[in-house]
Structure formats: C-alpha cells, structure tokens
C-alpha cells in the first residue's frame, strides 16, 4: 500500500503541510508573531522590537546569544514554572555566572529586584530589573544537568563549562540550622526581567526544582521574551545601589570600553 510519503513529492508536501501545527514548547519566528499576552515591561514593546519569543513546557531547554543591554523577561504562566538559568559571556565564555560571588559580594542569598548577577571576573553579567515573584533560588541548582550540557554543546561548550545555575519562580529559604524549606511558588502570571550587562549566552531550562516533591510537582509553562535596551549606566539609581554593585558596574563598563563594545 502506498503511503502519503512514498515519493519525494508526497514527502515534501507532507512536510510542508505541518507548518500550521503548534506545540507547548516552541519559538515564534519572527518574534513579533508572538501570540500570547505580554505583561510588565514587555507590554509596551513594539512587536517588531522583540528579538526572542519562546514558550517552554515542562522539561524543555533552549538558549540564545544576546547583546549587552538586552532585556530578558521570564513569565511563569500557570504558577508552576521553574526557570533554571546559566549565563556565559558571549565573547569570552570562560567568564560566566558565579552564584557564590553573586550571594557573597552582594551580602544576600535571595535574588530579587536590584540583585546583580556577577561573573567570576568581578563584573556584572546581568541585573534583575523586575520581579513580581520574589521566590528564587541560587543554592540548589538544576535537576537539569543533562539539559544544560546539551544546550551548552550547541555553543561549542562542554560539561566543564556549565557552572551552578540560578533558578527563578521556585524559592527556598534557609533556617538558622542551615536546613532548607520546600520550594515556594508565588502563583501564576509572575515575571522576572533581566538586563544583560554583558553580551551573553543564555542557557535556559524549565524543569522541576531539585527539592520539589516528585509525587505532586508538575512543571508549568514558561514564556520568554527579549528585546534590545541599554546596559546600566552612571546616573541610574541601580548603579549606586550598593558600593559592591557600583564597582561591578564600573568593572563591566571599563572592560567594554576597553574592548570597544560598550
């Protein structure tokens, strides 16, 4: 019996007929075709300004290379997303997110608006510029090691290049005895926006928090939108939010000026 893909012409027609379908995890290309509602700072961005628009269902991972100044907004659509993020400097990927410096230098274990994500070279990689969740984690990492390894491989990077990650929308808290709470989610529709202070390879995975109860936890949909903007500059209150942040921004700006990429 002949199938609808028995000949090259039929196989081609069969393949081309698939474009109208959709999926829980998919990019929208061009990004201006994004069909879903936009909230927060993304609401006012003209569609043709978007540079990245992607929906990630449970277990999905993706990556992008983005310019200095880009805003990256993550939205926890149903109140169950768990966004694991690794940032590597795009023009020198041996410089990358350092979660230990991010909590130690800023004297704060919990991420929130105004927190600077630091590289291992004493520079600001990104700033959290919006946060309607308040529940994030940089202590427990990702149960997504394999997802990150394959995402990194697409940028010529290996397992050794993947550092401990930051996690958005599932927050844990530390008790006096060092023990950790179960992860807490703030509910549906919450979003976080990062401002990239350096050009970055963004690795992103939407998979369960390591402390989530596997018997009850389900991972909800994550929306990703990005658009161009400026990096943090002198005069922005964020620049002087702390002496440590100010020096990180100074280091970043000085390095970009020296490289001719400011």
């Amino acid at each position: 019996m002949s199938s609808s893909t028995a000949t090259t012409a039929a196989a081609r027609a069969h393949a081309r007929a698939q474009e109208g379908a959709t999926a829980a995890s998919r990019p929208f290309v061009p990004p201006g075709t994004w069909p879903h509602p936009r909230t927060g700072s993304a609401a006012d961005v003209p569609p043709d300004r978007l540079v990245w628009a992607e929906a990630l269902g449970a277990g999905a991972a993706t990556s992008a290379v983005l310019a200095r100044g880009t805003r990256v907004q993550l939205t926890d659509v149903d109140g169950g997303a768990c966004a694991h993020v690794v940032l590597l400097r795009a023009d020198a990927p041996w410089e990358r997110l350092n979660v230990a410096d991010t909590v130690k230098v800023l004297w704060q274990a919990y991420l929130g608006a105004g927190h600077v994500l630091l590289s291992d070279q004493g520079r600001a990689l990104a700033t959290v510029v919006e946060d309607t969740s308040g529940h994030h984690d940089v202590l427990c990492g990702a149960s997504a090691g394999r997802l990150f390894t394959t995402a990194a491989a697409k940028h010529g990077l290996g397992e050794r290049d993947v550092p401990p990650s930051a996690t958005f929308f599932q927050g844990v808290r530390v008790a006096d005895d060092g023990s950790l709470s179960a992860p807490v989610n703030a509910g549906p529709g919450r979003s976080v926006a990062l401002r990239l202070e350096l050009p970055a390879i963004v690795l992103l995975a939407n998979s369960p928090h390591p402390l989530a109860d596997p018997a009850t936890a389900t991972t909800g949909t994550l929306h990703v939108l990005a658009w161009p903007g400026g990096a943090t500059r002198p005069g922005d209150p964020q620049w002087t939010s702390s002496p440590e942040a100010r020096r990180a921004y100074e280091n970043t700006r000085t390095d970009c000026l020296a490289r001719g990429t400011a």
Partner: peptide, 21 residues
C-alpha cells in the same frame, strides 16, 4: 560542627568588588 558551601573562593576580581580596587 559546621562548614560553608555558599561563599565560594576569594579571587582578585571579587576582592575588588568587596573591598576596593
């Protein structure tokens, strides 16, 4: 009784942020 997992290593670069250039 207890030891640290959070603070990471000191570096010349992070020292510049924590204490000055």
């Amino acid at each position: 009784g207890r030891h640290d997992t959070l603070g990471g290593a000191c570096s010349r670069e992070s020292n510049s942020l924590r204490y000055g250039f």
